[in-house]
Each structure stands twice: as C-alpha cells, then as structure tokens.
Computed example of a mutant assay.
Amino acid sequence: MALPQQVRLFEMGPRDGLQNEAGPIIATATKIEFIHRLAAAGLTHIEAASFVSPKWVPQMGDASEVMNGITRQPGVVYSTLTPNLKGLEGALAAGVEEVAVFGAASESFSQKNINCSVAESLERFEPVLERAREANVRVRGYVSCVLGCPYEGEIAPAKVAEVAKALYDMGCYEISLGDTIGTGTPLAAKRMIEAVGREVPINRLAAHFHDTYGQALVNLYAVMEEGVAVIDAATAGLGGCPYAKGASGNVATEDVLYLLQGLGIDTGIDLQAVIDTGYWITGELGRKPGSKVALAKGCKIA
C-alpha cells in the first residue's frame, strides 16, 4: 500500500509526557502555556490532561484547572484520559469534548497497571462509553503492550486485534495501538497492524510507539505502509511508563515531523515552532530535549 498523503499527529506531551515526571509538581500555568504553544505550532489534536486519582498520578492532579485555564483555539481538539466514570464526570464538568480509555493486550500488564484482567477492564469501560455517548463526547481507545510486554514478552497479534475490536465495537472512534516498552521492530509492527486491520478499519487506527530501542521511526514507517495515518508523539520525546522498566519516552514529535516532511507527507505543523516549544518545556524541567532533530537544528527563540 502507498504511504498516506496526510498524517494527523496526536500530541501526547502535556499528558503522557508530563505524567511521570519525578520531582516537584509542574505548575499549572506551565502546563497551560505548553498546550498553548503546541496549538500555536499547528497541532490540532492535543491530549491535555488526565482525570485520574492524584494519589496515583500526582502530576495530573490539576486536570480541572488545566482544562478550565486553557484558551481553546478553533479547530483544535483538547482531549483527556478518563479511566473510569469518576474521571469522566470530572472531564465533562471541565467542558472536555473528547476523552480516552486505556486497556492492554497483556493480562499481566493489565493486572499490574489497573489491577484487573483485560476482560474486566473492558467491562469497566462500558458505562464510561455509555455516559460519554449521552454527553455527545467522543471516546478514543488505547491498547497497551501491542508489540511486547515487560512481564510476558511477545504478545500475539490476535490478542491485540481482539482487544482493539472490543474497544471499537464498544464505540471508540479510534484505537491507538501502543508499543509501551518500545521493543517492536518493523516486521512485528506490520504483522500486528495486519491482524488488527482485519477487525478494525485501518482508518480508525493510530500508532503510539515508544523509542526505547530506537525503533519507533522505522516502525512508524512500516505501519504507514499498511495505511495507518494517525501518529501519537510527544514533543521533546517526553514521557515513559512507570510499569515498564527501562521504557523511555514516546517518539519525539519533532523527529516524526522531520520524517514526514522528508516523505512529502502533509501535517500542517510548523516543525521549528515545535522544536522551540520542546526546548522551552524541557528548560522548565531542567534538561535538554530528547529529540534528535531538535538537538541537531537547535532552538530559534530565546
């Protein structure tokens, strides 16, 4: 299959990127400014916060303040993670127009992450999807560990397809397939997408690949060849996974943009503006960006 002519980038930096930051709680104003800068750079889909218990994810304890504090730009979707009904109600009160739920293709990961089986996790999502439908809010579904699990090793593509189909049938408009620990390689990525694509339309799939083993970009190229045209990425390569030892951040938005530009694929995003934003947010965090492209091209603003 030919590469897509357009790719939609789904920016994960404010949520998946910041949620595992150690040390002091990041100021709400910093998170809001980060989101504003990303929207100004041309990103049209930004996962802005997570309505979860601050006990488990302290960095996301100000989700309501963040969502009420941002100046929403026309044409930009600001989504949030809502793992349960309580989280969804908090998101609805903050005027969210899109939310996300997350499951796993690995039984062990599901137990470690959300303390229940894969089947139980899917059952828990049904009332969330039902309430979201009532509120006319779209729901995105995540599947973790699609190319490997820290506890089980390789994951069968058929298992990924089963979970993805369950989320799609439940009403999720899009299914994001996550290589949570970044162990996937291009052939495994293709086989996984082929299996999932038999159960869920390709145009309803997104790739969410971490770069732990330096394979994210080649894996993204492999699944784009299969027709995937939505990519999750985090500016400056922020993020990780607290349940996956050694898992580095998401693939950097800057690196994905550079690849897409080289392929002549349209995104409508200003690469240099994203690079500058990455330098700004990592400066706030006291380190350098995790993007190879950002380090090579440098920051163009003070």
Score class of each variant (00 low, 15 high):
N84M: 10
L187M: 07
Q111Y: 09
E174T: 13
Y213G: 00
P24T: 14
P14M: 03
A216H: 05
N219Y: 02
N113L: 06
M224E: 04
I70G: 02
L43I: 13
A247K: 05
A294V: 14
E154T: 09
M170K: 08
A104F: 05
L263N: 00
L238V: 11
P14Y: 02
A100D: 12
G178I: 10
D255G: 08
C149I: 01
A302R: 11
Y243V: 04
K112E: 04
E120N: 05
L260C: 01
V99C: 12
L129K: 02
T185N: 02
Q73L: 12
A273V: 05
A195E: 15
E225M: 12
A233P: 12
L38T: 01
P74W: 03
G184A: 10
D266T: 09
A39Q: 04
V160H: 12
K112R: 10
C299K: 15
S53Q: 06
H210V: 13
A100M: 15
G148T: 01
A119K: 11
T235M: 12
S64D: 10
E107P: 04
A273L: 06
H45F: 10
R133G: 15
A104N: 04
F125V: 09
V118D: 01
H208N: 10
N84C: 10
E11L: 07
P14N: 03
E134S: 11
E11K: 04
K55C: 11
R8Y: 01
S110A: 15
P186Q: 01
G240S: 08
T277F: 03
L88P: 15
T82G: 09
T180Q: 09
A63E: 08
L205E: 02
T180G: 08
A105M: 08
H208A: 08
Q19D: 13
F51C: 13
G214Y: 02
D266A: 02
A236I: 12
I114K: 09
P150S: 03
V200N: 08
V118H: 03
G239R: 10
E254F: 04
Y258P: 04
C299W: 06
L285P: 06
A207R: 13
Y168Q: 03
D232F: 09
I46H: 03
S144I: 10
G42W: 03
V146I: 15
A161P: 13
E89V: 13
P74M: 05
P289C: 06
S64F: 12
S53M: 07
I175L: 14
D169A: 14
V76N: 04
T30F: 01
Y173K: 10
I181D: 00
Y258M: 11
Y279L: 04
S117F: 07
F10T: 08
K288Y: 08
Q272S: 11
G42I: 07
D255I: 11
A244V: 11
A49G: 06
G246Q: 06
C172Y: 14
L238W: 05
V230P: 00
Q19E: 15
L18K: 05
Q261I: 00
S121Q: 02
A27R: 14
L81A: 09
H36L: 02
L167D: 03
Q19T: 14
